[in-house]
């Protein structure tokens, strides 16, 4: 298997697809996450499929699957911004559910609010019908590097 760094370098100069990077992560394959590059922007897709259904009678997507999809989208997004890519560790993840997730494809985009040396703050938005009608929005912090620190608690 290619190392993560090789794979990311190849993604950057077009020798590998972003999908290969997504498929590198077992959980991303489990959810069936896809990625659509549009110029330099990335849109992530959680395709509708039975395994991500929560309430079967509505039917509605499981909120946990949508959250996991958004968290993974943010991780891929940050990886592509890092000089020395290492899988970011999620410190915290906070999600607001605004509308029901219907049984249809879900899309997500990420925005890095602050990319520090050690910590990244990312905003993630997910929608189904229209981008400006999000079904969920989330905010998360990721630990990028543990250099000069033996303890996760010494974050600052």
């Amino acid at each position: 298997m290619k190392t993560l760094k090789t794979l990311i370098d190849q993604c950057r100069n077009g020798e590998a697809t972003y999908q290969e990077l997504v498929d590198h992560v077992p959980y991303a394959r489990f959810l069936g996450i896809q990625v659509i590059p549009q110029g330099e922007e990335l849109t992530f897709v959680l395709p509708k499929q039975d395994n991500v259904v929560g309430n079967p009678t509505l039917p509605a997507l499981h909120g946990g699957a949508v959250a996991g999809f958004m968290e993974q989208a943010a991780i891929i997004f940050i990886l592509l911004q890092m000089g020395e890519p290492r899988v970011p560790k999620t410190i915290d993840f906070t999600i607001d559910y605004l509308r029901a997730g219907l049984f249809r494809d879900t899309f997500a985009e990420c925005r890095i609010t602050r990319l520090g040396r050690r910590i990244a703050n990312v905003h993630i938005s997910a929608w189904q019908k229209q981008r400006d009608e999000p079904i969920t929005i989330a905010r998360a912090h990721f630990l990028l590097s543990e250099e000069n620190s033996d303890q996760d608690s010494q974050l600052a």
Binding site: H24, V25, P26, Y27, F30, G64, G68, F93
Partner: peptide, 24 residues
């Protein structure tokens, strides 16, 4: 479970799977 791993280098389960369990 192998297919719930978030980081293939460490084998740590994905935060999303843990989130889904906690939400349920």
């Amino acid at each position: 479970r192998e297919d719930l791993v978030g980081n293939p280098e460490t084998g740590v389960m994905h935060g999303g799977a843990i989130f889904a369990m906690m939400d349920q």
